[in-house]
Amino acid sequence: MSGTRYNYGTAMLAAFEYLLENYPEVFVIGQGLWSPWYVGNSMTDLDKKFGAHRVIDTPVSESACTGAAVGAALAGMKPIVVHPRMDFMLYAMDAVVNQAAKWSHMVGGQAGPGLTIRTIINRGGEQGAQHSQALHAWFAHVPGLRVVMPATVADARDLLIASVLCPDPVIFIDDRWLYDLEDDLPPVVERSLDSARPQCLRSGADLTLVASGYSTRLALEAAALLQQQGISAEVIDLRVLNPFYPDSLVISVTKTGRLLVLDGGWSPCGMAGEVIASVVERIAPDTLKKSPARVTLPFSPAPTSRVLEKAYYPSVAMVVSQAGKLMDKVC
């Protein structure tokens, strides 16, 4: 592909610049926005370029800042809230779950807060239980929240733009373990978030790997290794977890007969389980050659000690091994 070279972080930076340049009602609010410490290369110098009145670094007040963005959205602005670590965003759950998510429904669809809450999964580095969580499934459980997880450089830019232009509250979850991905992107074309459906990133015939966010990268790396062993894996990136459209997953699994779901969260009541259930309830039982499986985190908080941390996060080797089991092979 020809175009401009971006990485996952600078692709988001390009999205912020596009939005701030073209939409005067867009502003950004959150902690760390005037510092290079918090958001990597995804927001560098936005405050200098667009002014501290539109790129607002705030007091240590996740709850009020998120609530304020909801109110500003109801008053016609298009705010982007930034929570550099998802764990701290839990202070804002009333604004997210009780207010933003419910508003349209409880006022009869006459108004709704079109705001985007960008939050970052920022795990590893021995940071432990309160700097590592991936709670996308929580948000996807709530009616009224759109939940977006970009796994590619193109989606990091284009889905951020689509999220901010969407009239609904959007939880946009990016992942620090993807910031080194690079790609060439064409100029921006605005697209509706409604058009962002699950996307097949690699075609295959033997099994279907479904993932989102960083797990999609694991799936692609695993699929490449599986190919060397003669196993053809199809990789589907969910991109948007709510609303969730399983149709293309059903088509894929109908073709392959095998489903392995990767998710960076916990298993119980999680996204992997939702994917498996949504596929299984839509296909004939004899379509499946093997029972579906999932690769998720151990059901425990993130550890700090490096030995435990290494074992905690799913690796490409774990995905390959699990895929092999579905193929009755040792991989």
Binding site: A68, G76, D94, N98
Partner: peptide, 18 residues
Amino acid sequence: IVSGTVPLAVGAALAAKM
């Protein structure tokens, strides 16, 4: 939700300022 709209009013006020 007790106090739920208080930050919303601040945000709507901030929007008014903008």
